Amino acid sequence: MQYKAQLELLRQQIPVGIKHGLALLNKTNGDFDKARELFEEEMILLIMDKMQAPRNEAKDVLLACHYDIARTIAAIEERRYTLPERILRKTKDKEEALGLIAVNLEALLRPERDYWLLLDRLTGLHPAQYCLLAVQEWLNYEDWEGLDSAVYFHTGIVAALIGHELQLPEVAHVIIAAKERMEALLPVFQKTGDHSVIGGDTVLAGLRADFREGRELIIDRLYAYVVSQIRHFS
């Protein structure tokens, strides 16, 4: 193999593949120093293009990351964006992004839990922080326990947030109506033990269906709300 010694030395010093390394050496007639310079220039131009970065920044971060492109991109993004901003940029699923931002915020704030967040004891938070944590926790609870149980989990707090902060009064009304219907049915169920009292109630079934549609609206509106308030989540 032509330029074998130079190639081995080149690959010891920079993360270049065999084919790429030989191409560099062929372009420079086997000149090791020029081949390395050519590689460095290629990597700098690549990062400048991918990240719209000035030359000095691209070069400095590349050197610090030993020309690892993935690490360089990540390092530049960390310089430019907070963790919540990076989550929004990289996570396409809105519900997943909200969950990740909420987890990060909770790690920073360390609010009190008794398995579930104690929404009535969350104090000292910015309204945007409180809205995300409370609504996200309630949605998690509903996803785990179902709407019939979720209507008893801080319903007043969450319905107010959904109705006012997220401007979805119709969805808030569905949640409140579901709670009122459960409260009307529960004494009958407790007296008879007949599960069909709740499970077969057509009014409650309709409210469950309405909530399933409304849940998507909550996610969309909460996501837009968090995007508009992103500075408060880091």
Rank of each mutant, 00 (worst) to 15 (best):
F211T: 05
H232R: 02
A58Y: 09
I176G: 04
L22Q: 13
G199P: 01
V174W: 09
G200P: 01
L207M: 10
L139F: 08
D148I: 05
A205M: 09
L204F: 04
A172D: 08
E57I: 15
V135P: 12
P127Y: 00
D194N: 02
R221E: 04
A102Q: 15
R181I: 13
R212F: 14
Q12P: 03
L168Q: 09
T192F: 02
W138K: 06
K90R: 14
P15Y: 08
R208L: 12
D31E: 00
D210R: 15
M51D: 00
R212K: 14
R121Y: 14
Y3S: 13
E95N: 07
R86A: 08
G200S: 04
L132C: 00
I87A: 12
Y225V: 09
L105P: 10
D31R: 02
R89E: 04
E137K: 00
H164W: 13
I87S: 05
L22I: 15
L122P: 09
D49N: 09
H20K: 05
L118W: 03
H232W: 06
R86I: 11
I198Q: 09
G200T: 08
R113Y: 14
E106H: 02
L22V: 15
P15A: 12
E142Q: 14
H126E: 11
D31K: 00
I219W: 14
L166S: 12
V61G: 02
D148C: 01
R231P: 11
E137M: 07
E57A: 03
